[in-house]
């Protein structure tokens, strides 16, 4: 069982959270001409490292806030969590 520290609520068990994937993904800006490649990258291409991974989680059964987590994908160790507006 992962124990995840929600930056708003504190440590809770994994059951309360839902996973949102790579947090480095940026949506192309609205109202601008966006090349197809940028859309492809946004929709389909993700960082998939073995080791430290910066990712999004959703405290879906809690405060319902999205936040960032720095986690190791091979040991599942969680190093740090932060609000969306903060740097990891």
């Amino acid at each position: 069982m992962l124990e995840i520290k929600c930056p708003h609520c504190g440590s809770r068990s994994q059951n309360e959270f839902s996973y949102g994937g790579d947090s480095s993904v940026k949506r192309p800006e609205l109202g601008k001409e966006v090349p197809d490649k940028d859309w492809d990258d946004f929709i389909y291409f993700r960082n998939n490292p073995r080791g430290k991974h910066s990712e999004l989680w959703h405290h879906v059964a809690g405060c319902r806030q999205w936040f960032k987590v720095l986690r190791d994908t091979s040991t599942h160790e969680i190093f740090k969590t932060a609000k969306l507006t903060e740097e990891l």
Partner: peptide, 13 residues
């Protein structure tokens, strides 16, 4: 399990 992982073991939930 629902999150990126390279560990060949999962979690109880």
């Amino acid at each position: 399990d629902g999150y990126n992982s390279y560990a060949q073991r999962g979690n109880l939930p």
